Structure formats: structure tokens, C-alpha cells
Simulated assay, not measured.
Amino acid sequence: MYKYKFGLVINPYAGIGGAVALKGSDGAETRREALARGAEQKAEKRALQALSQLLPYRNEIKFFTAANSMGADILAELGFEYEVVYHSNVSQTEAIDTQQSVMAIVRQKLDILVFAGGDGTARDVASALQESARFLKAKSTSSELANWNPEELPVVGIPAGVKIHSGVYAITPVGAGKVLEQLITGALTTLRAADVMDIDEDAFRQGTVRARRYAELKVPGELEYMQAVKIGGKESDELVLADIAADVIEEMDDNALYIMGSGSTVDFLMGELGHNNTLLGVDVVYQGKIEQADITGAALEERVKQAQAQDIPLVLVITLIGGQGHLFGRGNQQLTPAVIRAVGKENIRVIATKAKLQALNGRPLRVDTGDAELDAQLSGFISVTTGYHDRTMVAVQG
């Protein structure tokens, strides 16, 4: 007999816009365009990574979920006991499917709700929990449900989207599984309120970040595994950024192919080089010129292969996400595992101000490439350029 009632909802289209440079996955048209560009659906794989951590406790859990790729498929693959309580009537699921599935699932009076997606998915979950609370308060004839508030339900988000500004997600899919394992073993004792954040994707595609708080959800208070809300805005200390840029420029080799990641620190460097930069994308610089701007993951893999065939050195310049510390897996999915492997850890140039590193309060940098073996290879210590001829060694964890 199972002890725990878990809910599971997967947004199967979460994150598909990232690797093909669409900078999001919201909206049916964006998803169609992403699929036309050859995007892969990875949300189920990431949910499987998380839930695999619970296999030793398989006989203690029953899941309530949605049909097919919204949850049932991976639960069947992993061998968990589950009950389907929502069926979508469309082939390409929409936000309304996430909302309705959550509303159906939470009527089972769960112990915890698990969902995989991005910030848009988190908004849908929060909206559904709010609507469920209103409905149960006004309509329920069951005294048990009438006195139960779905808005107090603990949730754990499995990161699968392009945009992960919200604090309701675990740092990695494996981290989500660890949080759930701690719940089962009794190690979790506290909950905290975490913000559900999202941005304007149209503005995001134009290089502007407009983040807004939409709601809050209750999450386990395990900061080791649950991520902080992203810090928005550009670095303000231009003198420090100028020193960092001067150090990188001094070492640049015109014969090398430079892959320039996203973020305001790299944006400043590109400005010092005299280039227009794709602030929230990935650009390729070769022999002092922008060869390809806002490149997709597939196109970047092909360009890297060409460079390797011609013995052209590869250098990847990236920064970390402020407040979270992610190097890979948040907003830069164009940097695929194949690209990162080709470059090699020794040729990854991380640049950041010391203030940005100090804001992590001792937490390590994070990598979440979607490839567990690669994440392990990237773990350890990495040198971060924090000024002119100034380096800081920082721990990296997958």
C-alpha cells in the first residue's frame, strides 16, 4: 500500500524554443516554428531524470497525472503506480491543458505536486491552484476537501524551460529528485514561499528583460537544491567590466573561433570589441568579425565541426546568471552538449564581477546541460576572470 500521493504534470513543449534561438516556447505559433526548425522535446527526459531518483521508493508512491506525454508515459516507463485523471483532446497541448490537469490532479488531496516546464508553466500551475482553492471553497460538498487549501500544497518544479526566473524550480532535474527523496525520508521539515516570475517573451526576443512577479507557491526550504530567483538588470560597475573586457581582449587570437554566450557581461565585452551583440542569444566571432549572430544549436554544432576539421581553435566565453549561478542550461540552450564537449572545459572562459560571485553567498556555480555525464565532467573548479589579470577559482556542480 502506498504512503504518498504525488501529482505530476509535464509541459511536453517546455524549452523547445531554446536550442533553435527562439528564446522561449510560449504560444502555439512559437512551438510550431520551433518544431519546424527541428527542435527536440526534452521535458519528458528531464522529468525522467528527476523521478529516477525515487525508484528505491517506488512501492511507497502513487502518482495522479495526465495522459500520455503530460505524465503517464514516463511513469509507465519507470514502473510507478499511477492514475490518469486528465486527458487532453488536442495533439499539441496548450497552457489550458496544464491548468486543467492541475485542477483535476489536486482534487486528490496530494502530498506534493511535481511539474516540469518553465516560467510559463509555473504561472499556469499557480493559476490552477488559485482557481482550485476558489472552487473548493465555494462548491465542495466534501468537508475534507472544503477545509483543504490547494494554495498551501507544496510544489517542486523540474526545470525544463528556456526561461527559469522563478524560485519554484530545483537547480537541476536530479536536484528535484533529491528534494522529493528528502520528503519521503522525512528529512524535509520546512516550507517557504517562492516567487513565480515570468517575462515578456516578445520583449525578450528584442533583447529586453522585463520580469514580473505573478504569484507565489510553497516549496521545500532546501536551498541546496532549490534555486534562487534570478537577479535582473545589467552590471552597474562599468570600470570592473572594462577591466574584465580588457583582459579577455588582450588574450584573443584572431585565428580562433569565439562562441560568445548570452548575458550583460558578455554584452559589455562585445561592445568593447566594437560589435553589436545578441544580448540573449549566442554569437560566433571569427577573425575579428561577427560570423553568425543569434545562432541556433544545430547551426553551431555544424560550425564547430567545420572548425575542428580545419584545426581552428575553439573558445567559449560565457558568464553566469546572477542570483542563480548557472553557467549552462538557463537561457543558453544553443550551447548544446555536443558544442560544449567540442570546446572542452579548458577552453571555456567564464567572466563575471566579484560582486556577482559574492551574491551567490558561497553557493557553487551550476551546470545543467541535460547530459549527466557532461555535467560531471564540468564539475570541480573553474577559473573565473573577475578583472584585469585577476582570476577567482570557483566550485562548479552539476
Rank of each mutant, 00 (worst) to 15 (best):
Q310T: 08
M260Q: 01
Y225H: 14
D247Q: 01
A203L: 14
K3R: 13
K5A: 13
T386P: 00
H275F: 12
S383N: 14
A309Q: 14
E44I: 10
R192D: 07
L320V: 06
T296G: 04
R363C: 13
I290D: 03
L223G: 11
E152R: 10
T385Q: 03
V304G: 08
Y286D: 01
L280Y: 06
T185Y: 00
L136R: 01
G387T: 01
G331C: 09
R123G: 14
P173E: 02
D243W: 01
E60W: 03
G288L: 12
V20T: 06
K289H: 11
E29Y: 02
D195A: 15
P313Y: 11
L378G: 07
A342N: 04
P12C: 08
G38A: 06
R366A: 09
D202E: 15
R123V: 03
K5R: 15
V156S: 02
N361G: 08
M197Y: 07
N255Y: 08
Y225W: 14
I244K: 00
D97A: 04
A242Q: 01
R210N: 15
Y258M: 07
K356R: 12
G233E: 12
A256R: 00
K109P: 02
T385M: 05
A126W: 01
D200K: 09
N276Y: 05
V174A: 13
G322E: 11
Y388N: 03
A47E: 04
Y286W: 14
K137T: 13
I184F: 09
R213E: 13
N147C: 11
N277P: 03
V317W: 00
P220N: 04
A50F: 08
G370T: 05
V266K: 02
